[in-house]
Design a binder for these strands. Structure first.
Lengths: 236, 236
DNA sequence: TAGATTGTTAATCGATTAACAATC
DNA sequence: TAGATTGTTAATCGATTAACAATC
C-alpha cells in the first residue's frame, strides 16, 4: 500500500522453491547452505537469493551462510505453513482422487478433511478413509469443520458454480483445477492450475527448439504497417 | 541472440491466456475484439495486449480491433498448435488416467497415443481405448510412432529416471507432474506442474488476506543488521 | 466525415545484477 | 588472523504503461 518497503511478487513465487530445496537439504542432514549453493541448485543467481532473503527478513550469517532449519522454518511461516490448512476436494473424479492420495501435501500441513461430489454413485464411498459426501452437505460441513481451502476438480462447466457456492459458504481459499477463470470477492484467495496453458507453453518451447531460435526470425525495423509478415521472433 | 527484436518471455506466458479467451469468443460467435475487451477479461492492460501482439507480429485494424479467428490462428501457430503433438503418459496411476481422459487436450491438437507403466497389474488394461504398455516397450514405441511429448506422472522417486529414459530415446518434450527438477540436454523442452508450489502460493495469499497486508508490516530503515525482527512485509 | 482503436515510440516502473563494505 | 559470505546500496536491465499519430 505504501510505496516503500514492499516485497516483490516475483520473490514470493520463489519462496516455495527455496522451501522445497531446503527440505531436501534437511532430509540429507545438511545444516547450512550458502546463497551460491542454493542459487546453483535452483538456477537463481546468488545475488537474487540474498536479495530475496533480505527483503523477507530472513537473515544468515556473514562468512557462513544460512541455517537450513531456521531458514526453512521462517519461509514456512511466511508461506502460512505454520498452521494446518484444511482442504476439501470438490469433485471426486480421477483428478480429485489423485490429489486426495497425494500424501506429500499432508506432510506440509495441508490436510484433506472432506470430499464432495454430485454423482450419487460416488457418494458414500471413501478415498483414503475420507468419505465422499453430497455437495449439498458442504455448507454444513464447513460450519462444523472450518475449511480453509476448497480444491475444485469438477468438470469445467460446473467449476464457476462450485466456486460461487464455496465462496458463499465463507471459504476463503480456492485451488482451481478447471480451465476457467472466475471473479471472487477481495478477501478470497484463488490459485489456478491451468493444465492447457502449461501444455501450450511446452509446445511453444518445443517448437522453438525444433526450429531453432533464428530460423523464423524477422527484423522489426521501420517498415510500413501493412507489412504483416513478421511472426514469431526470437525469445529474449 | 541478437539484442534487438526480441520478444519478452513475459509475453509468451500470456499467449495461452489470449488463446483460451479467443476460443471462448469464437464459440460465442464473436468475430472481433479490441485490446480493451481482451484486457478487461484477462486483467491485462490494453496497452500490454497491444504491445504483446505488436511484438509477436499479430496485427489488427485501427479503429476496429482484432479479428478473433485469424488472431487465434496466428497465436496457435506461434504456440506450435498448427500440428498434432503426440503424447505418451508415463505412469498410469490416477493422475495419468485423469490426464488421458481430459478430452480438451485433443481438441487443441495434443493427442495421447500411448500409456506406459511399471506395474504388471496395469499393463494390458486400457484407458479410453489406449492400451497401457510396459515401460520397456517405450523405446520401440517411440521409434514407431514419433512421440513429441512424454507426460511424467510416476511417483516422485521414479521421475528423474523416467525423464532420463525418455530423453535417451530421443523424446524432445517433457511435461513433468512429479515434484522434482531435472537437468535435460539443450534441445529438450521441459515444463513442470508443481502442485505443492502452487498450493504454498495459495496459502501465502490466504495468510495475507487473513492478516491484512499491514498487520505484520515492519519498516526497513537504517536499523542495525542484528535486528532480525522484520518478517513478512507487504506485497507490491 | 467523425469516432474508434490500433501501431509504435518514449517514459516509467520494477526486478535483477553487480559491487563491496561489514563481519562472522 | 585470513577467508568466506552475507547485508545492503547503487547500477543495469527488462517489462509495463502512457501517449498519441496513424488510419481504418
Amino acid at each position: 500500500m505504501k510505496d516503500e518497503n514492499k516485497v516483490s511478487t516475483a520473490g514470493i513465487k520463489r519462496l516455495p522453491k527455496y522451501y522445497r530445496y531446503l527440505s531436501v537439504l534437511r532430509q540429507m542432514g545438511i545444516g547450512r547452505v550458502s546463497s551460491i549453493d542454493l542459487g546453483r541448485q535452483l538456477e537463481i543467481t546468488p545475488s537474487k537469493v540474498r536479495q530475496d532473503f533480505f527483503n523477507f527478513g530472513c537473515y544468515g550469517l556473514q562468512g557462513y551462510g544460512y541455517e537450513v532449519g531456521s531458514l526453512m522454518h521462517e519461509i514456512g511461516k511466511i508461506l502460512g505453513m505454520d498452521r494446518v490448512n484444511t482442504m476439501v476436494i470438490i469433485g471426486a473424479g480421477k483428478l480429485g482422487r489423485a490429489l486426495a492420495n497425494h500424501s506429500s501435501f499432508e506432510k506440509r500441513g495441508y490436510k484433506v478433511i472432506g470430499m464432495f461430489d454430485m454423482n450419487p454413485n460416488l457418494i458414500g464411498k471413501a478415498v483414503r478413509g475420507i468419505e465422499i459426501r453430497s455437495i449439498d452437505m458442504l455448507q454444513e460441513f464447513h460450519a462444523q469443520h472450518a475449511v480453509d481451502i476448497a480444491v475444485i476438480t469438477v468438470p469445467r462447466v460446473y467449476a464457476r458454480e462450485m466456486a460461487e457456492r464455496v465462496v458463499s459458504y465463507g471459504v476463503k481459499g480456492i485451488w482451481n483445477f478447471a480451465s476457467v477463470e472466475f471473479e471472487v470477492p477481495e478477501d478470497v484467495a484463488v490459485e489456478h492450475i491451468h493444465f492447457s496453458e502449461s501444455l501450450m507453453a511446452l509446445s511453444y518451447k518445443l517448437k522453438e527448439k525444433r526450429t531453432g531460435w533464428l530460423a523464423s526470425w524477422q527484423p522489426h525495423d521501420g517498415r510500413s504497417q501493412s507489412d504483416r509478415s513478421a511472426i514469431g521472433k526470437g525469445v529474449r
